[in-house]
Design a protein around this nucleic acid. Structure first.
Lengths: 197, 197
DNA sequence: GTCTATATCATGATAGAC
DNA sequence: GTCTATCATGATATAGAC
């Protein structure tokens, strides 16, 4: 965070890190590029050199976080066979991430990107969400999940857990999410499962 | 919309109606008070006279819509006995409202109010959401809903339906919501119900 | 209560030295 | 690649006549 400690800090990283904090704390529109520069200890000229314009900052942030999510889901899908295990592991990991990196989670799935990233479609149409629907789709062909529209199944399976996350980020839910993973997952799976345990 | 048709249009109504459209189409921060005035056919001076400042417009909008939601839930709770019937009716009505008044729904449960209404807490802590939790709580004491934390039960019951609504508002879901009410409600209720039908 | 005209100021973005 | 200084625009909000 300071050039005294680290002689050659990566400007791009510094900027993105500060931007994430400010965007989630005050919102994109209440954050000026000057604010970001001040928080990152980087001049406004450098920022425009690296990102082109303000939207470029949000864009880079979205790409990076989206990539991480995608990688996470890919890893989970390789490690588990059943849709049940895959989805459960995903919810568990998202709950952990909500506690350890609340700002990253907030920016990814609780920001209204359409308002400041006209290029990007809605989050739900981004690659990570596509992968989640694939997960559900396979579970349906395997017979783990009742036959129904894939979009509906996916939304109903992950809807509860995702709203737990936004509730937690809002401070409406006070308990750390991993503490209620079992209860929430139980509800989520019952919603779509073929057999009740 | 025009003073030719109606000789004495209510300025407040005109402004709020235009503001709702613009806020949901472009977002709060990309809408200027001038824009609202132009769309409503009202001068900027009048707007400031009635609402004090820009935030006052959003505030009035939120109060009014929140009041309508509250009334809707109250009516539903009076008309049905069981939590099952109450919650199902609520989801049905919200699905209908999403089709008939998408902007109202979008402003109520898909806008990040914290970013432009610092006074208001998060939506989930507003009165309508409180009433929904009461609904669930009663269902639990009646034995309709499995015993668990009320917040978790409420989030898991309504999480799927609410995300269907945001998905529909985003255009990710193309089917009118009332068409998939049964499938969605089936999932939602299974998530928390004591007995599976 | 409604209007026009205006004050004030912050922001996104650029220029150009180093 | 980084910096400072500056521009240009457009926004919120106000003043004051009617």
């Amino acid at each position: 965070m300071n050039s005294v400690l680290s002689p050659r800090p990566d400007t791009r990283y510094l900027v993105l890190d500060s931007a994430l904090t400010l965007f989630t704390e005050r919102g994109y529109f209440s954050t000026s590029v000057h604010d970001i520069g001040r928080a990152a200890g980087v001049s406004i000229g450098s920022i425009y050199h690296h990102f082109g314009d303000k939207e470029g900052i949000a864009d880079a942030l979205f790409s990076q976080l989206s990539g991480r999510m995608e990688a996470l889901i890919g890893e989970i899908r390789r490690r588990h066979d059943s849709a049940h295990d895959q989805a459960r592991e995903l919810v568990a990991r998202l709950f952990e991430l909500t506690e350890s990196e609340p700002r990253a989670m907030e920016f990814m799935l609780y920001a209204k990107h359409r308002e400041f990233l006209p290029g990007q479609g809605p989050v739900c149409s981004s690659r990570p969400f596509e992968l989640m629907r694939e997960m559900v789709s396979q579970g349906m062909t395997r017979g783990e999940i009742r036959p129904m529209d894939t979009m509906i199944a996916s939304t109903c399976l992950f809807g509860g857990p995702l709203r737990m996350i936004t509730g937690r980020l809002d401070g409406v839910i006070t308990q750390p999410l991993p503490d209620c993973l079992e209860a929430v997952w139980d509800c989520a799976w019952r919603a779509v499962a073929t057999t009740t345990p």
